[in-house]
Design a protein around this nucleic acid. Structure first.
Length: 474
DNA sequence: ATGTGC
């Protein structure tokens, strides 16, 4: 698809509405963050998403945009439910409700440093990760898996894997309400049964970090962050269960799209009206996967908490848990009124502004915490939702890949990577060194530039910078 | 992202 990319000031670009596009594209990134590998399809994907039935305002791209399945990663698209708007699994991604949670310890970096090696050893032995492998929670049976799919982190806490405060600090109170277990296929259930409480692979991780800088002291204090404080950041999703659900429902939609008169420029944009049996079926299965991902992060956090209590004499308090791969039915201004929109966020973090009713009481004045993990060996950021967000309250979600996984293997080696990480003094414990080659810091954009661009585009405000002390990689 | 795929 040919696109007409026009600079709109120093911080963003516009893709002119041409051909079958129903809205323009808006790429909220400066020139040096635009995907520029030869043949890269990310910007064309922004334009193709703009052709989806019912899409409103614009097809958005966050500053960490890169090429994905159908939708770009870092893509945000909202469709008008009453106006025949569609739901597309490609706008959520294979890793349904992949997200990040951040926990704060009661110990400072200097006090922990001596104990860090033994603490990392313990986490290394405890946390399941890598492809396949088991999970921390050995379920009693299929009925208990169904409870997880319906109750998410809330059910995990009810079962003793956490404290009530954890649930208060999860998006949606730890579980989305409309999960439909009957829309989750047998293969998905089979794959999910043994993986609750496991990191997965690729860019998923559990990191021990320290607060390195604070940019907004009042907000940081409300978030429980101060310079030198130790934190734990967990990034993972719904494992094989979410993957299987995505594959199953893309296939189902592909078979019925024509019946709804829907024609898309890319088969990976398979979609159906939100208000259709197939649309509701996907949303019900997606919600079940979302709850699975939240329970997964809850189990991992609770395990890390027990290690911290035992070895560092410190608890871990959940600051917030938020997804960056999800579609949600939300009310937003549209055509001079409030309308129910299906907001697809794929590699984009929901970022509620200060005062929003869905925020926990203790955070409401400050906006929703947004977590922006960098790469192993580089900084991560805490941001907060800001008023004036035009991209349906969405923000960036990470550094954003620039090298293909294939190119990463060409450009670097395990040995080179080990040396480099040893040089910055970060203890990285991967499931396998081969898999982490694809996660080399050079394979990603500069996360500092990504958060700067996010702030300039009113997607969020900077709160604090975190640096890694120890990294468990998938 | 993924019991990694034409």
């Amino acid at each position: 698809m040919d696109i007409r990319l026009v600079a709109d000031g120093p911080w963003r670009f516009r893709i002119e509405q041409t051909g079958t596009m129903r809205v323009p594209g808006v790429v909220l990134a400066p020139r040096d963050l635009l995907p520029d590998e030869p043949g890269d399809q990310a910007l064309s994907q922004v334009a193709r998403v703009a052709t989806l039935p019912g899409i409103v305002r614009a097809s958005y791209a966050m500053p960490d945009i890169h090429w994905g399945y159908g939708f770009p990663i870092g893509g945000v698209a909202a469709t008008d439910v009453a106006g025949g708007g569609v739901i597309s699994p490609g706008g959520v991604g294979f890793d349904i409700s992949c997200g990040v949670r951040l926990l704060t310890a009661h110990v400072d970096r200097a006090a922990l440093l001596r104990k860090l090696p033994v603490l990392m050893d313990r986490l290394d032995g405890l946390i399941p990760r890598g492809l396949g492998r088991g999970g921390l929670w050995h379920l009693a049976g299929r009925a208990q898996l169904h409870e997880i799919l319906r109750g998410g982190a809330r059910y995990a806490v009810e079962q003793g894997h956490g404290v009530p405060h954890d649930v208060e600090r999860c998006e949606d109170g730890g579980a989305v309400g409309d999960a439909d277990v009957t829309q989750v296929g047998e293969r998905a259930l089979e794959r999910g049964a043994g993986q609750v409480g496991s990191l997965g692979s690729a860019n998923h991780f559990l990191e021990v970090q320290a607060v390195d800088a604070v940019y907004d002291e009042t907000c940081a204090r409300a978030f429980g962050l101060r310079p030198g404080l130790v934190c734990v950041m967990i990034h993972c999703g719904s494992r094989g269960l979410g993957h299987q659900i995505c594959a199953d429902h893309v296939r189902a939609m592909d078979a019925v799209m024509q019946r709804y008169g829907i024609d898309v420029p890319d088969p990976q944009l398979a979609c159906v009206p939100v208000d259709s049996p197939e649309g509701r079926a996907y949303l019900g299965a997606m919600a079940a996967a979302a709850n699975y991902a939240r329970a997964n992060r809850q189990l991992l956090a609770d395990a890390a908490r027990r290690v911290f209590l035992q070895l560092a004499g410190s608890g871990l308090d959940l600051l917030y848990d938020v997804s960056h791969n999800l579609a949600k039915l939300e009310t937003h201004p549209h055509d001079g009124a409030r309308a129910l929109l299906c907001v697809h966020r794929k590699g984009a973090t929901r970022a509620l502004p200060p005062g929003h009713a869905d925020l926990p009481d203790a955070l409401r004045r400050f906006g929703q915490p947004v977590f922006v993990p960098g790469t192993m060996g580089t900084a991560s950021y805490v941001m907060t939702g800001s008023t004036g967000n035009r991209a349906f309250d969405s923000c960036c979600h990470g550094a954003g890949r620039v090298w293909s996984r294939h190119r990463a293997h060409r450009e670097t080696s395990a040995r080179q990577l080990r040396q480099e990480l040893a040089g910055v003094g970060v203890s990285v414990r991967p499931a396998s060194w081969r898999s982490v080659i694809e996660e080399a810091p050079e394979a990603y954009k500069d996360v500092d530039a990504v958060v700067r661009a996010s702030q300039h585009n009113d997607l969020g405000r900077l709160v604090a910078r975190l640096v890694p002390l120890g990294v468990l990689k998938g």
